[in-house]
Nucleic acid binder design. Structure first.
Lengths: 148, 148
DNA sequence: GATTCATTTGCATCATAATGCAATGGTTGC
DNA sequence: GCAACCATTGCATTATGATGCAAATGAATC
């Protein structure tokens, strides 16, 4: 049914192979973006278009400054923001290009998995290297599960 | 410094205006993707490239079937998966195109906010309609903050 | 050196969510 | 109808994370 030889025939086989999507579907990034307050702060700094200090950002939302500080640190840890200290002020800026690039790469990886893939692309969804799972995500086919 | 007239000068002003990024930086989507187990299940179904039943998916991860069922329902609620019942079997499939499209739209919105925007694009990062916040995200500028 | 300001950290509290087990609801096949 | 099967839901437990307040850290100014 599927001409691509690197396409797994079952979820168990799919879990056992590792493709671009496994790396790009990174829970840590999404964990940073999944909180409404944090998403709002990010949108705020993004729209502002310049590095913003913690207190500046705190001025436009209802939560405590300490909470804002923690949120921005979380976003920085996820490589969504970068920070720069200027005296006693710390300014956070959006890593526009890195972020949009990551999102597009994920979109590409998803399309590559799609059976009616738009992308006639070079790489398939699975890089069948030895049929070993990439070990990144939780679902790991147990070695014994190589079914009939 | 910035030629774009629709660019806010401060985070408070930025929070008060509403752009594409506010809608696209949707915490609900990221909430669905932020759990490692769930991300793994999604990657698994995506790589498989065909609709998968709950028990099929459960066979390739270490958590209980009921947990998998709940995770898949969560992903469906976030429009990441679609489901189809076939007798007593429910098969979940990845909404490849919708998902990648959403991610690309977000990437575009982020780029539009970038001062050195690649996209010479039509829309700016803020659609300065009456300088009212879009009310979607938490940070909401107080109504008195309608700047000069 | 002391004070002030911006940010961060410690700590306690509260809310949300992940998980497993058991039970239930439907559907198929005998 | 009854048994087997698949999926979902209820419930309890546990873990994680968001939040606010207070205290601490670090930097600039007097």
């Amino acid at each position: 049914m599927q001409m691509n030889p690197s396409r797994p025939q079952s979820p168990v086989q799919a879990a056992a192979c590792c493709g671009p999507i496994d790396r790009l579907l990174n829970p840590d990034l999404f964990k940073a973006l999944c909180d409404p307050t944090r998403a709002g702060l990010l949108a705020c700094i993004a729209k502002c278009g310049r590095p913003c200090s913690v207190s500046e950002v705190a001025a436009c939302c209802s939560v405590d400054t300490s909470v804002v500080s923690r949120h921005l640190a979380t976003l920085e840890k996820a490589s969504v923001l970068s920070s720069e200290r200027d005296g006693r002020v710390v300014r956070y800026a959006v890593r526009y290009q890195e972020l949009s690039k990551t999102l597009r790469a994920l979109a590409d990886a998803i399309d590559q998995c799609c059976p009616e893939g738009f992308v006639p692309g070079e790489r398939g969804c699975c890089e069948e290297k030895g049929a070993l799972g990439c070990g990144q995500a939780s679902p790991v086919a147990s070695p014994e599960h190589t079914q009939p």
